[in-house]
Simulated assay, not measured.
Amino acid sequence: MEGRRDGGRGGSAPGVDDAIRELLLLMPRMVGRAKRIPVPDELQSLALAPRHLSLLSYLLFDGPMAVNDLAARLGVAPTTVSLMVGELSRKGILERREDDSDRRRRIVSINDSKRPPIADWLAQGATAWRHALAPLTPDQRRTFIDTLLAYEAGMAGDEDD
C-alpha cells in the first residue's frame, strides 16, 4: 500500500490507496445526503423512485424529447423508458404528445404543474454539483466525469482490472 497515510485534505496529492480510502468513506456519506433530500409535499404521494430521477433530470434540463432519445441518454431500452413514461403519465407527472414532424413519434415533457416542485427537488443536487465543478477546467471536469463513469462500470463488473 503506497501513498500518504495522514488522510488529510489539501496539501500534496494522495497516493492511490489513500484516495481509495478517502472515497470509500466519502461515497456512503454522499449517497446518504442525496437520499435525505426531502421530496416536495406535492410529489410525496406519487411514489417516485430513484430510477425516475435521471429521466426527470433530462426532461427538466434538456426539455421535451422522444422516448428513443431518452432511452439513448439513460442507456436503457426504449421499452423500459416507455414503461416509466406510462407510469409517470398516469400519475400526472409527464405528458405525451405527437411530434409535429412525425406523428408516429411521441414527445415526452414534464407537466407544467409538476415542473416547479420537480425543479425544487433536483435543485439542491444541481447546485452542489455546480459549486464542485465550476472551479475546475473543462479538461478536469471531463476527467472527473470519466473517473465516475469508470467507477460505475467497475462496480457493474464491466471492467477486467
Rank of each mutant, 00 (worst) to 15 (best):
Leu23Asn: 10
Val76Ala: 10
Asp112Ile: 01
Ile93Tyr: 05
Leu74Ile: 09
Asn68Glu: 14
Ala72Asp: 14
Leu26Asp: 08
Val81Tyr: 05
Pro116Gln: 02
Gly86Arg: 06
Ser89Val: 02
Leu60Ala: 00
Gly75Val: 07
Ile93Thr: 10
Leu43Tyr: 10
Met84Tyr: 11
Arg105Val: 05
Val39Trp: 12
Leu48Trp: 05
Val67Gly: 12
Asn111Asp: 15
Pro116Val: 03
Ala77Asp: 10
Asp69Asn: 05
Val108Lys: 03
Ser101Ile: 10
Ser45Pro: 08
Ala34Asp: 13
Leu70Tyr: 05
Leu56Ala: 06
Thr80Gln: 12
Asp62Lys: 08
Asp112Ala: 10
Ser82Ile: 01
Met27Phe: 13
Leu24Val: 01
Ser45Asp: 14
Asp41Glu: 13
Ser82Ala: 15
Leu88Cys: 02
Ile110Leu: 13
Glu42Leu: 09
Asn111Val: 03
Gly86Ile: 09
Leu43Arg: 08
Pro116Thr: 06
Leu48Glu: 02
Leu46Cys: 01
Leu74Ser: 00
Arg115Gln: 11
Gly75Ala: 07
Ile107Phe: 08
Leu24Thr: 10
Leu59Met: 10
Ser57Cys: 11
Ala77Tyr: 07
Pro78Arg: 07
Pro40Ala: 04
Arg96His: 04
Ala34Asn: 12
Leu53Ile: 08
Ser101Lys: 14
Leu56Glu: 03
Tyr58Glu: 10
Ile107Cys: 04
Pro50Ser: 09
Tyr58Pro: 00
Pro50Arg: 07
Ser57His: 14
Val108Ala: 07
Lys114Tyr: 07
Asp112Phe: 00
Asp120His: 13
Asp102Trp: 00
Leu59Ala: 04
Asn68Trp: 03
Pro28Phe: 01
Ile37Pro: 09
Arg21Val: 09
Ile93Glu: 01
Lys114Val: 13
Phe61Gln: 12
Pro117Phe: 11
Val108Glu: 02
Leu56Gly: 08
Val39His: 13
Arg97Tyr: 04
Asp100Asn: 02
Asp62Val: 08
Thr80Trp: 04
Lys35Ile: 00
Ala47Gly: 11
Glu95Tyr: 04
Met84Asn: 04
Gly92Gln: 05
Pro78Lys: 05
Ser82Lys: 11
Glu87Ile: 01
Ala77Pro: 03
Glu95Arg: 15
Leu83Glu: 12
Ser45Tyr: 05
Lys91Asp: 04
Leu55His: 06
Pro28Ile: 00
Ser54Glu: 12
Leu88Pro: 00
Ile110Pro: 02
Leu23Gly: 09
Pro50Asp: 11
Glu87Lys: 14
Arg103Tyr: 02
Ala34Phe: 12
Arg105Phe: 01
Ile93Lys: 01
Arg105Ser: 07
Met27Ile: 15
Leu74Tyr: 07
Arg97Trp: 06
Ser113Tyr: 08
Met65Phe: 03
